[in-house]
Amino acid sequence: MCSGGLPNPPAPCPCPLRQAWGSLDALIGRLRAAYEEHGGRPESNPFGTRAVRIFLREVRDFQAKARGVSYEKKRKRPKSAAKLPIADVASATTSPLPPPPPSA
């Protein structure tokens, strides 16, 4: 178990020093965009290679495991709610407003 979160760890942390996954993901996204904005072809973009995506996934999983948090993708909305028209969804999820008071 890593002791990196303790204020006075009994021994140095053996974990590799890595940038936070969100920061890495954002940086690589900006590099990928800059490469293409400056004339690079998307299919030859070195920041979009499979190796980079695998590295980012490994960093994310490693950091989530170290924190004891499992990373799960966002779940899609249930199909029953997705099939209803917008007006039906609104009326099904909210109660109707009371009628305005009669004017005198």
Rank of each mutant, 00 (worst) to 15 (best):
R67Q: 11
R50H: 12
R77V: 09
N8G: 06
P7V: 00
L56K: 01
L31Y: 08
I54S: 07
G29T: 02
G68F: 04
D88H: 08
I86T: 11
P7T: 03
A26L: 07
L56I: 01
H38N: 15
P100F: 00
C15E: 12
P9I: 01
R32H: 11
A82Q: 12
N8S: 10
R32C: 09
P101C: 02
M1W: 11
V89W: 08
A87R: 05
L84G: 03
Q19I: 13
G29K: 00
A34Y: 11
W21E: 09
R30N: 14
D61P: 02
Y71P: 04
R18L: 15
Q63E: 05
G39C: 09
P7D: 01
L31G: 04
G22Y: 03
C15L: 14
L17G: 14
P16S: 02
Y35E: 07
S70D: 15
S95M: 11
K74I: 10
P99V: 06
A90D: 05
V59G: 00
G29L: 03
A104D: 13
P46H: 05
G29Q: 02
G48E: 01
P98R: 05
C13F: 00
A82N: 04
S23F: 10
A64Y: 12
L6M: 08
A66P: 06
T94D: 04
P9M: 00
A90N: 01
C13L: 01
G39P: 06
V52S: 03
T93C: 11
V59T: 06
G29H: 00
L6V: 03
F62I: 05
F62M: 11
P46G: 04
M1A: 15
P7Q: 05
S23D: 14
N8T: 13
E36I: 11
A26H: 06
V59W: 01
L84P: 00
L24S: 05
L84T: 03
A92V: 02
P42C: 03
V69L: 09
R67Y: 07
P12I: 04
A51K: 08
S3W: 13
P12G: 03
P85N: 02
R60P: 00
V89C: 07
A34V: 07
A33K: 13
I28Y: 09
S44P: 06
L56P: 01
R41T: 12
A104T: 15
R67V: 05
S3D: 14
L17D: 15
K73M: 11
Q19H: 10
A34Q: 15
S44H: 15
E43K: 15
L24Y: 03
L24H: 00
E72C: 12
K74S: 14
F55Q: 02
G39S: 08
P99H: 03
R30K: 14
G5Y: 10
R57F: 04
R53N: 10
R75C: 08
P46V: 08
I54W: 07
R30E: 13
P10G: 01
W21C: 08
Q19M: 14
A87W: 04
Y71L: 13
A20C: 06
